[in-house]
Amino acid sequence: MRQLPIADRPREKLLYRGERFLSDAELIAIIIRTGSEKRTALHLAQELIRRFGDLRGLANRSAQELSTIKGIGKAKAAQIKAAFEIATRLITRPLTQGIKVSSGEDIYLNYKERFRYAKREFFIAILLDSGNKIIKDVEVSIGSLTQSIVTPREAFTEAIRESAANIIFVHNHPSGSSKPSDEDIAVTKKLKETADIVGIRMLDHIIVSVDSYASFADEGLL
């Protein structure tokens, strides 16, 4: 990096001009800090962007995938993943224990960022007390790109254990559309039937995509 003029070095450029003037590769170079024996941090960052397309593609890769780039070991891969996780937490509205859920939008604003780079469908159960305050959320299952596999038994196990009074289910559509599929409707019907049997009130099933969400309760599908 020393062969670059001081004003063009990523760290100095950020300090003198501001972070908005840096390219994606320059920002990544600051995160990984050092280069390898033959390549600078900026060269490594440029290779990461070239290989994975853009910041979104980079964020969507595991630490193991990142470390396949020559010069990016486990430490640098961990630094990159940590930076993206910090960004996600900053823009995610936390639904922590004791917080009252008032609407489907509350759920959407939290989970859209959590699912933004997900390649597969994640099925989540949000356990609530009788006042609709969060007890905890539970990852019930992980499916494929177009399908989340969940059974009523899996969906309600933790809710019964925690003596939840109410429950909301959430899953994402990596395809980008939040429109419920026929399978989503069928699964929701089974979950509602099970909820009635075990005495837990099912308040909603929400499908989340990056730009929109669908609420079964709002659409009268429960």
Results as ranks from 00 to 15, higher is better:
4 L>Y: 13
5 P>K: 06
6 I>A: 04
7 A>E: 15
9 R>F: 03
12 E>C: 06
13 K>S: 04
13 K>N: 04
15 L>Y: 10
30 I>H: 05
34 T>P: 03
41 A>M: 07
42 L>T: 09
46 Q>S: 05
48 L>A: 10
49 I>R: 04
49 I>G: 04
51 R>E: 11
51 R>S: 01
52 F>Q: 06
52 F>M: 09
53 G>T: 09
53 G>S: 09
56 R>E: 15
57 G>M: 03
59 A>K: 05
62 S>D: 03
62 S>K: 11
62 S>W: 06
62 S>F: 08
65 E>Q: 12
65 E>D: 15
67 S>W: 14
68 T>Y: 06
69 I>V: 15
70 K>Y: 15
70 K>M: 15
71 G>R: 10
72 I>M: 06
74 K>M: 08
77 A>L: 11
77 A>I: 07
80 I>C: 02
84 F>V: 10
86 I>V: 15
88 T>R: 15
89 R>W: 10
90 L>P: 09
94 P>F: 05
99 I>A: 11
101 V>E: 09
103 S>L: 02
107 I>A: 04
107 I>R: 02
109 L>T: 09
111 Y>Q: 10
111 Y>N: 05
112 K>W: 07
113 E>T: 08
116 R>N: 02
118 A>G: 04
122 F>I: 07
122 F>T: 09
126 I>R: 07
129 D>M: 09
131 G>C: 01
131 G>I: 04
136 K>E: 13
136 K>T: 14
138 V>M: 00
139 E>Q: 10
145 L>I: 12
150 V>M: 00
151 T>S: 08
151 T>A: 01
152 P>C: 07
153 R>T: 12
153 R>P: 01
155 A>K: 04
156 F>W: 02
156 F>G: 00
158 E>G: 05
162 E>K: 12
164 A>V: 09
165 A>R: 10
167 I>T: 05
169 F>G: 00
169 F>L: 05
169 F>K: 07
169 F>R: 05
174 P>T: 11
175 S>Y: 11
175 S>L: 14
177 S>M: 02
177 S>V: 14
177 S>P: 11
179 K>P: 01
181 S>L: 14
181 S>T: 15
182 D>V: 12
182 D>K: 14
182 D>E: 15
183 E>P: 00
186 A>V: 15
186 A>D: 12
187 V>A: 01
188 T>Y: 14
194 T>N: 01
195 A>L: 05
197 I>A: 08
197 I>V: 11
198 V>A: 03
199 G>Q: 06
204 D>A: 02
205 H>G: 03
207 I>M: 03
208 V>N: 07
208 V>S: 01
209 S>K: 04
214 A>E: 14
215 S>G: 01
217 A>R: 12
